[in-house]
Design a protein around this nucleic acid. Structure first.
Lengths: 215, 215
DNA sequence: TGCAAACGCTGACACTGTCAAGAAAGACCG
DNA sequence: CGGTCTTTCTTGACAGTGTCAGCGTTTGCA
């Protein structure tokens, strides 16, 4: 993960901060701000203040605000990937179980990391096409979803040789929509206030959906 | 609709703008800005500039920026309601047809009004609990969804006398997730670039979903 | 050693949302 | 009619933002 990478020139004997240290502290301050006050509270100047550098220093590491957001989004996709991989790995061997585990992991990630989830799925926050690294991490997530769900729904090949993504997208949409609606509070408080209660509610709804989708 | 209401004190003999005219022009400028440059481009000062008033005038009609957004969101929910009502009315009598028409209308609205759709479903944009009028309009949409889909999936009543919303939310999530993913460009360009092409793709996916949901 | 690049700072600019205070104009009341 | 109150709208200010420019200092390398 970008935050903890320690590959750097050996500058540990110096008492000043190494390049990577500064970069890491900028990212760490960004994450803290995002989690405390939402994406709106993530300002370049406040980030710099928290990182203990001048308001201009972050520009030596990131071209602009969007570049920081892209880095955070990339990390988010990596972590979502972890969530999903381990959930699918733990699930029993049945395809239906793996599919449900995938959806549950997706929603668990969203509820536990609301701000970064918003960031990851909002086009105007960072245009991923301008940040190939982050885009690759996003694509990796999509491919995991497609290969897991695709295997489960028996993806067919159309006459052009492309796999039929319709069932994959349908199932992904169901999980993504549920995550989004819960995150934005559009389902009311009927489903509990704690994250645990909301996860349990999401599980029930997801169970219904995946039951419908399994024939 | 708030934009066209003309109930006002009779001040038409004056050559200056009436109160409602100013209010309407502020809202109109807000909508134009939102549609031109996204929600980020909707600033109080630019709105005032476009409406031809001083930068402070809008504060006599709206407490703050959020109040304008709440008004726009309310209008959006009214229009979404119109979309859905007329689509369901036109559909054939079968429950499945009405359900599919509802979902298609939902997505058509989202694709044709992307910015206001984003606004309507983002909690941090305007806290609807602070704007009861807009909240009522949102609730009206949800009730329409619940009554249409509920009738279609045979809503059961739990032991506390509450209807079982699980199937309703599951179906709503599927449509909402698809709308969101398409809107934010997360499904790639594989589904076409024009709104028409994307609507057609959405119809195919929605058709698959509703087929799965109908037993 | 010398030099160029990387790094970090201060200062400035245009922009934002919003508070404060005042001016103009209509409404209400004696 | 005169006086006062309220609404409407103004200009001015303040703190905050993202980011460009310019200037030192440090670093890595030839």
């Amino acid at each position: 993960m970008a935050l903890t990478k320690s590959i750097s020139r050996d500058t540990s004997h110096r008492d000043t901060l190494s390049r990577d240290d500064v970069r890491a502290s900028i990212l760490q301050a960004s994450i803290a701000l995002m989690n405390e006050g939402g994406l709106g509270a993530l300002s370049m100047r406040e980030v710099a203040r928290r990182a203990g550098v001048s308001h201009q220093a972050p520009y030596h590491y990131f071209a602009d605000r969007e570049a920081i957001l892209a880095e955070l989004a990339g990390d988010g996709f990596d972590r979502l990937h972890d969530y999903m991989v381990s959930a699918v790995g733990l699930a029993r061997n049945s395809r239906a179980d793996k599919n449900r585990a995938l959806g549950e992991a997706y929603i668990r990630f969203a509820l536990n990391n609301p701000e970064v989830f918003r960031l990851m799925f909002r086009a105007e926050m960072c245009d991923l096409s301008r940040y190939p690294e982050a885009k690759a991490k996003a694509d990796r997530c999509f491919e995991l979803v497609a290969s897991t769900l695709g295997a489960g729904t028996g993806v067919s090949i159309d006459d052009k040789g492309n796999p039929d993504l319709v069932p994959v997208i349908a199932a992904w949409s169901a999980a993504h929509g549920l995550a989004t609606l819960m995150l934005e509070g559009k389902l009311g408080e009927a489903f509990g206030e704690t994250v645990d209660q909301r996860e349990e509610a999401a599980r029930r709804i997801l169970a219904f959906t995946s039951q419908q989708f399994s024939r």
